[in-house]
Amino acid sequence: MSTPRFVTIPDHVAIIMDGNGRWAKKRGLPRAMGHRKGIDAVREAVRTAADVGVKYLTLFAFSSENWRRPEAEVSDLLGLLKAFIRRDLAELHEDNVRVRIIGDRANLRPDILKLLEEAEHTTRGNTALTLVIAFNYGARDEIARAAASLARDVEAGRLRAQDITPSLIEARLDTAGIPDPDLIIRTSGEERLSNFLLWQAAYSEFIFLPQYWPDFSRETFYTALETYAARDRRFGGLSAAKAAPAAVVV
């Protein structure tokens, strides 16, 4: 299947991959099977993003709240993350994909932390698609950590409180150096952010899809991109058509 051309391609697409468990339940399968099928959808999303020219793809892989799930499910999710990186890292590197991890790394298991750092280190020089994996990530926690970092600088006299700006806060977020998402997609029919990129989503476009994540395909991604291309992004101002000066008749 040839890759279509879109009028507008978002530089940064972020995806809340939701519905693995419900996909499995609908088919009478264990939840773990839904997560495993979801990994196939991850691979398809990464390939599609690279093919159409998306520069950044952020995937909400594991939230800071996911630790509350049953121990067996958490163990399975961590195992899938490890398997994905071990199996796919060489291919991602060969395809010039850079991997970045966002989320709180404090108190992570040494084997998980080592794997995440290896993925970043191996691909740090790559210049095509940047694949951002949100692991042990929560937006409120991210903002709190950024605020605490700035507070420490104020206490140490390196920074004045009145000099703190949105730009300084952004520089302390996990996503420092990554542009805000142009488009956020959530699957499974749910219509909420669930503590994902709260700061960065200020002017993002949202698309909520009915499909469960394991059913997310290249065609699904294309449909979302077509919808995005038809949006009129104003960032608080006027649309391009309305902002254009009226013709003067003499």
Results as ranks from 00 to 15, higher is better:
Ile9Asp: 00
Ile9Val: 14
Pro10Leu: 04
His12Asp: 06
Val13Glu: 05
Ala14Ser: 12
Asp18Met: 03
Asn20Glu: 04
Asn20Val: 05
Trp23Cys: 02
Ala24Trp: 09
Ala24Pro: 11
Lys25Thr: 12
Lys25Gln: 14
Arg27Tyr: 01
Gly28Asn: 13
Gly28Ser: 11
Pro30Met: 13
Arg31Leu: 06
Ala32Asp: 08
Gly34Arg: 00
Arg36Phe: 08
Gly38His: 10
Asp40Arg: 06
Val42His: 05
Arg43Met: 14
Arg47Ser: 14
Thr48Val: 12
Ala49Asn: 10
Asp51Ala: 14
Val52Ser: 01
Gly53Pro: 06
Thr58Phe: 05
Phe60Gln: 05
Ser64Glu: 05
Glu65Phe: 07
Trp67Lys: 05
Arg69Ser: 13
Val74Asn: 11
Ser75Tyr: 02
Leu78Thr: 00
Leu78His: 04
Leu80Tyr: 13
Leu81Ile: 15
Leu81Glu: 08
Ala83Cys: 02
Phe84Val: 03
Ile85Gly: 03
Ala90Asn: 13
His93Asp: 15
Val97Asp: 08
Val99Thr: 11
Ile101Val: 14
Asp104Cys: 03
Ala106Cys: 01
Asp111His: 05
Lys114Ala: 13
Glu117Ser: 11
Glu118His: 15
Glu118Phe: 08
Glu118Ser: 08
Ala119Gly: 02
Ala119His: 02
Glu120Asn: 12
His121Pro: 00
Ala128Ile: 05
Ala128Tyr: 06
Leu129Cys: 03
Leu131Thr: 13
Ala134Val: 06
Phe135Thr: 07
Asn136Leu: 00
Gly138Ile: 00
Ala147Asn: 13
Ser149Asn: 12
Ser149Lys: 14
Asp153Gly: 04
Asp153Ala: 12
Ala156Ser: 11
Gly157Thr: 14
Arg158Ile: 01
Ala161Asp: 15
Gln162Pro: 00
Asp163Trp: 15
Ser167Gly: 12
Ala171Cys: 02
Ala176Lys: 10
Ile178Val: 09
Ile178Trp: 00
Pro179Glu: 06
Asp180Ile: 05
Asp182His: 14
Ile185Leu: 11
Arg186Asn: 09
Arg186Val: 06
Ser188Cys: 10
Ser188Asn: 12
Gly189Gln: 04
Asn195Ala: 04
Leu197Trp: 10
Leu198Ile: 14
Trp199Asn: 09
Gln200His: 08
Ser204Trp: 09
Glu205Ser: 12
Phe206Arg: 06
Ile207Tyr: 03
Leu209Phe: 00
Leu209His: 01
Pro210Leu: 01
Tyr212Glu: 01
Pro214Ala: 04
Asp215Glu: 15
Arg218Asn: 07
Leu225Gln: 01
Glu226Thr: 02
Tyr228Phe: 14
Arg233Asp: 01
Ala240Pro: 03
Ala240Asp: 15
Ala241Pro: 00
Ala243Asp: 10
Ala244Leu: 15
Val248Arg: 08
Val250Cys: 02
